[in-house]
Simulated assay, not measured.
Amino acid sequence: MWQRVHVLQAPAPFWWPLGYPALVALAFNLGGFTPLAAQAVSVLSGALVAPLVFWWVGDISPTHQNTSGTSAGALVAGLAAAVGGELLQLSMSVMADASALMWALFSVLALLRYTRDRRARWWVLSLLALALATLTRWIFGGLIAPWLIVFALTWWRAARPQRALTHALASALLPLPLAFVQAGALLPATLMGHSWVVAWNPLDAFGRVFDNPDGHFVYALPVAAFYAQPIAHPYYLFPLLAPLVLIGAWALRRAPL
């Protein structure tokens, strides 16, 4: 795969999304065909996450809305992102997670601007960034539904709702070129025939022992427990996420919609 993307050719059919390989291909052409060039993509992407989180939280904080100062919440959020164990790990690995998170945060910031002035440029930027996040890690496609809800709420009772139709059309057309590029490398049979899809069972979330074409695997924790660790394990995010989520939910109970 790397030999093909290094010369900017579409990779052979495989079921991973193309967003991260595209960034790595660019890094190869800038820094040479070495593992360090691929790792640099994750390092730079992860390094951008903390300032983007700081910007995001500061942009929605009451302190920012009422004054020009920086909120304590933005500082805490930025520092928490910067020292979070999981982000540090993802930033050092040749994996797509840090890059996908970076694109998703860019999309969030553009979406926030769009909700305030309804300018098409912010909606377009948000859509493109979300498309890149999805084409980097499939799971970020789950943000499409809440993005559409925000779009609907933004135009609810608007003075000129006809503009929403143009922006909605952009929602359908803008991601198409990226989707066509991805479809050229992703054959349906490749995805649907993959062992992770064919042999998948919801009960696997509670299992620890698995046998698949890659081998025999025994894990210390059930799959669901492993992926739930970021809620309370200090390695992933400190201070602990769970208490802060509860405090935040309580604080938002009277927040205006």
Rank of each mutant, 00 (worst) to 15 (best):
Q229I: 04
F14W: 15
H6F: 13
V209H: 13
L48A: 13
W147C: 07
L246C: 08
S68T: 14
W196M: 12
R116N: 02
R4C: 07
F226K: 11
N212Y: 09
A251N: 14
S195F: 15
L176V: 15
A96W: 00
A158C: 07
L79F: 12
V53G: 00
G58Y: 05
G84M: 03
Y227C: 02
G19R: 07
N201L: 04
F180D: 03
S107Y: 01
G248K: 04
L191W: 11
H194L: 04
P188H: 00
Y219I: 02
R121A: 12
S45D: 04
S68M: 14
A47Q: 05
A172E: 10
L176P: 02
V223H: 13
A199F: 09
G142A: 15
D117F: 02
L153F: 15
A168F: 10
W55S: 05
D117P: 04
A172N: 09
V218H: 09
V181C: 07
L90E: 10
D59G: 15
F206Q: 11
V49I: 14
A255I: 04
L128Y: 06
I144A: 15
W156L: 12
T166N: 09
R160V: 11
Q65F: 03
V76M: 11
G69N: 12
Q229E: 13
G73P: 01
S99V: 06
A22I: 10
G58E: 12
A172M: 14
W200E: 06
A72E: 11
S126P: 05
L90V: 04
L174H: 00
Y227H: 14
T70G: 03
L153N: 07
L257Y: 08
A82Q: 10
S171E: 02
L127Q: 13
A232H: 15
A158E: 12
F28A: 05
L18D: 02
P256Y: 01
R254S: 10
I247A: 08
V197A: 12
Q39I: 09
L176I: 15
Y235G: 05
Q65D: 08
G193L: 06
L191K: 09
P11I: 07
F180A: 13
H6S: 15
A170H: 12
L48P: 00
A100H: 00
Q39L: 04
T63D: 11
R118M: 08
D211H: 13
I247Y: 05
L153P: 03
F180W: 13
F140V: 01
A251Y: 10
P234L: 06
G73N: 13
G73T: 04
R253D: 05
A120Q: 11
F54I: 01
L173H: 03
A145S: 07
A22P: 00
F180V: 15
A120N: 08
F106E: 00
T115D: 03
L105E: 03
S42L: 00
A152E: 01
F226Q: 14
L18T: 05
T115N: 08
L246Q: 03
P239I: 03
I144N: 03
I144M: 13
F217A: 09
P17K: 02
L112W: 14
Q3M: 12
P234K: 02
A27Q: 02
A12M: 15
P202D: 06
A255C: 10
L178W: 11
S42M: 02
A224S: 09
G207L: 12
P243H: 01
G141C: 07
A179F: 14
T67E: 09
G248S: 07
T63G: 01
V43R: 14
P239T: 03
